[in-house]
Amino acid sequence: MPDTAMALTSNAGRFRAFWRQLDWPLRVALAMLVIFVFVAIFGPWISPYDPLQGSLRARLAPPVWQEGGSWAHIFGTDRLGRDILSRIIAGARISLTVCVIVIALAGAVGTAVGTAAGYFGGWTDRILMRLVDLALSFPVILLALLLGAISGPSFTNIIIVISLVLWSQYARMARGETLKIRNEDYVDLARTSGLSDFRIIWRHILPNIAPSLIVIATLQVGIVIVLEASLSFLGVGVPPPAPSWGSMVADGRSYITSAWWLCMVPGLAILFTVMAVNLVGDALADRINPALRGRNI
């Protein structure tokens, strides 16, 4: 099939051209992000051990570069003898799942609220934006602890809590961008063509505010990972024995003097992933914003 071959080479060419524009930190960040997503998706097939099964004989084994470490457990094992590498791999999947669900949920709600507020204005705007203010002034950790105390740690809780914190960012951005687009003549023209408000939002507003929202979503990936880890660390997040990075840090806390790698390895996983995500998000923001602003260059 010559056609597909053509498409492939042109895609490869485009990728190469794109890659060449990036500076090295961005290349590293992008590579790490790809690894993160790959590991999260294909974790069960590449994981050397079952992340939930340990052997007490091998408990608290040090990582390979420490004295007494072995290649059998590259990052060592925890107090129940579970392989830390396998748990990190499984944790990536949890982080990614939480990210996807939270960003989809918060994004949908926030965008709907913000777009409606910006488009309709007046009382709709005032009420919806008070709601956003309310969400921003919410004590998150308190709410998480409360929910945790009532129903115990659960996956659903963590999604609800993080979404409650994050949707307001989309709402604010969506409102601001909608206000800008709303004043463009093509929105008035659509109204003089008899399009309904819903169709105008769908056809004209959403496609034009999408780039800014995508930037927020990218930057939020980091926040979600940190929040999930923090909540899991506090014991109100992903319930044990699921290997969330946050609960792994919490688990290792009591061994910090004797087996520091229990905290260090998942901590570094969080650090590197979030940094990579933020670097990529910033680059994306830089790339998209001038395109929005620089109309009359």
Binding site: D185, A190, T192, S193, G194
Partner: peptide, 28 residues
């Protein structure tokens, strides 16, 4: 009743193809 506005940079949605822009009044 159809309008033409002053600024043709603001009156055409940058994310739509010209055909779709022109067809919009026909959609109703």
């Amino acid at each position: 009743v159809q309008p033409v506005f002053q600024n043709p940079f603001s009156s055409l949605d940058p994310r739509m193809r010209v055909g779709k822009i022109i067809a919009e009044p026909l959609s109703t």
